[in-house]
């Protein structure tokens, strides 16, 4: 049985009514300009959804709105996270309740050591779950274990968050945070972009080992390459702020071959090809 079958079997046992994430007719504007024009998306527990689409179609905007970025105005629609109103929660409460966003462009935090942030973040999450803060020994053991999973050197712990990290190191650092915080919904915004093939395999393996029947993923990507390692249950295509097509894993292959043009009527097929790279 592959992971997907396993997950599907498990999800049969779950309460079908409560979805991990339900986005209903979501409209989002920034500076008076509408970017998301009625997104509908439903992610069940244990499911992995891939979200693909050309540059500027609104993928990161959706991810950031789900995480609580307040520079975006939600003008209509609603979002339910395990059945509760997600948009009413502050970003930190969303995180503590198990929503995790891996940033497309992870932010540099000068003067703050990686390990310090990991500890503060984990303690916040544990507190929400009614658990005690880990003592220093257990915490370090956990962090070492997760470092190994993403094949990062321990020295990264004592460097300021993302400062001087290469593109690939930043992405791995995001995955490290995810593995430590153990979210129930992980939104990965182009975590595979800029990774060489070895790093991609490490990240993919990190995700695969992390999949459980309870944990859901929304994976934003331009590349079929990642989806070759991490098999999605569903693939969605977003264009100009709307989801224009949804299908199974085969849709990702089709996009790779044909680009996005055939989906949005008359636009050239260049975007995806340019994005595929070597």
């Amino acid at each position: 049985m592959n992971i997907r079958e396993l997950n599907n079997n498990h999800s049969l046992n779950q309460d079908k009514n409560i979805r991990m994430l339900e986005i209903k007719d979501l409209h989002v504007s920034v500076e008076g300009q509408e970017i998301l024009k009625g997104i509908n998306l439903s992610v069940g527990a244990g499911e992995l959804h891939a979200l693909m689409g050309p540059n500027g179609s609104g993928k990161s905007t959706l991810a950031q709105v789900l995480a609580g970025r307040d520079i975006y105005q939600v003008t209509a629609g609603e979002v339910l996270f395990e059945g509760r109103d997600l948009l009413a929660l502050t970003p930190e409460v969303r995180a503590r309740k198990g929503l995790f966003l891996s940033f497309q462009y992870p932010v540099v935090i000068s003067g703050v050591n990686n390990i310090y942030l990991l500890q503060a973040a984990l303690n916040a999450r544990r507190k929400e779950r009614g658990e005690e803060a880990l003592d220093a020994v257990d915490f370090l053991a956990l962090v070492r274990n997760r470092l190994q999973a993403v094949q990062m050197d321990e020295s990264f712990l004592y460097r300021p968050v993302n400062e001087g990290f290469s593109g690939g190191e930043k992405k791995r650092n995001e995955i490290l945070q995810m593995l430590i915080l153990e979210p129930i919904l992980a939104i990965l915004d182009e975590t595979d972009s800029g990774l060489d093939i070895d790093a991609l395999k490490i990240v993919a393996e990190g995700i695969n080992n992390f999949r459980t029947p309870q944990r859901s993923f929304l994976v934003i990507t331009h590349y079929q390459r990642l989806l070759g390692y991490v098999e999605p249950d569903w693939v969605h295509v977003i264009s100009e702020g709307r989801i224009v097509k949804t299908g199974g894993p085969e849709l990702a292959h089709e996009l790779e071959e044909r680009g996005y043009g055939w989906l949005q009527g008359g636009q050239p097929d260049v975007t995806i090809k340019a994005a595929i790279g070597p």
């Binding site: 995480a67 609580g68 970025r69 307040d70 502050t90 970003p91 930190e92 969303r94 995180a95 503590r96 995790f100 966003l101 940033f103 992870p106 932010v107 540099v108 935090i109 703050v112 310090y116 942030l117 503060a120 973040a121 916040a124 999450r125 929400e128 945070q177 915080l181």
Partner: peptide, 19 residues
Amino acid sequence: ALFYLRTRGLAVPEAQRLL
């Protein structure tokens, strides 16, 4: 930066203190 720290579960005063 403040937003990034908040998405990691840190409350605003804690995030500010860190920065």
